[in-house]
């Protein structure tokens, strides 16, 4: 009874809180900020803002880091007969991506796509991990960025699928053989939707996974300010736990994004239906 009577009260409080934008700082924290403004460019009637934002900065930092580290390990591997230190670790990760992600899901043709998947894995992993460092920003926690990465996968799927099977062959291959004629219209719609769902799922999965952890950590920290210092040990313990979980998630999501991309591209090239 008390719950029922309290409900309207609670709801009004909630909406008040929302209108007062008390929790906005969490969103503020995980969303993008401009750090270097460039006036919008009008391309085809759409104003596109090319300003450098924190996310772009983070991606540039990650890319620079990757270029430096990887070229260093490449030269180090060329010099040494057997890899040492950092280069050895990089090679270990490369072998993992090669033997446990790309080749099992794509087969032998995967060898041609190795540089693409290496870059994808290392880029997502680096961006994910950079986001865990204090004062840094998780670029993969932005839906535009994950959407662009997913669209790269989508374009690769379409391009290589059409290149291998021909334009009509590719779209015909999407529909399974032996489908009765009266189911065909439905199947066309379903297969077309599934084609679009693949990159969409990739995009949302990475974005949500990378954002959720941050929001949970921030919510635990915000409990300190709303409930007082009594809650500090609980907040810190749980934040730490979520933080450790986020390290796992950062690794896992890079792995999942790469393995699904390789699977999708492999499926587009070798249509089994």
């Amino acid at each position: 009874m008390t719950l029922l009577t309290a409900l309207p009260d609670t709801l009004s409080q909630v909406t008040d809180a929302a209108h007062n934008e008390e929790g906005n700082w969490i969103i503020e924290h995980v969303s993008d900020h401009k750090i270097f403004s460039i006036p919008p460019v009008n391309i085809g009637g759409v104003n596109i803002d090319f300003s450098i934002t924190t996310n772009i900065l983070m991606m540039l930092i990650a890319s620079t880091l990757l270029v430096i580290v990887l070229t260093y390990s490449a030269s180090s591997n060329k010099k040494n007969k057997h890899p040492k230190g950092l280069a050895n670790f990089i090679e270990l990760v490369m072998l993992f991506v090669k033997d446990d992600i790309v080749l099992p899901s794509m087969g032998k043709i995967g060898v041609n796509f190795l540089p693409f998947f290496f870059t994808m894995f290392f880029f997502i992993l680096t961006v994910n991990l950079l986001g865990l460092i204090p004062f840094m920003h998780t670029a993969t926690g932005n839906v535009s960025i994950t959407a662009s990465l997913a669209s790269v996968t989508f374009v690769m799927m379409m391009f290589h699928g059409i290149k291998k099977n021909g334009f009509f062959g590719y779209f015909k291959g999407l529909i399974p053989h032996g489908v009765p004629l009266y189911v065909l219209p439905v199947m066309v719609i379903i297969e077309f939707l599934s084609l679009l769902t693949k990159p969409f799922a990739l995009c949302i999965r990475l974005f949500a996974n990378m954002t959720a952890g941050h929001i949970v950590i921030l919510a635990f920290i915000s409990l300190i300010f709303t409930l007082g210092y009594v809650i500090v040990p609980v907040s810190i313990a749980f934040s730490l736990f979520i933080y450790l979980l986020e390290i796992l998630v950062a690794l896992l999501q890079a792995y999942i994004f790469t393995i699904l991309s390789s699977l999708f591209i492999g499926m587009a090239i070798e249509q089994e239906h």
Binding site: I56, V67, L114, P115, F116, T119, F123, S148, S151
Partner: peptide, 24 residues
């Protein structure tokens, strides 16, 4: 942001392919 990301990613693929992945 999308254009920036794609640009950065494609450039990264091209640069790393030539200077890192191939030698590695």
């Amino acid at each position: 942001l999308i254009i920036w990301t794609i640009l950065i990613f494609i450039l990264l693929v091209l640069i790393l392919k030539k200077y890192a992945w191939k030698p590695l």
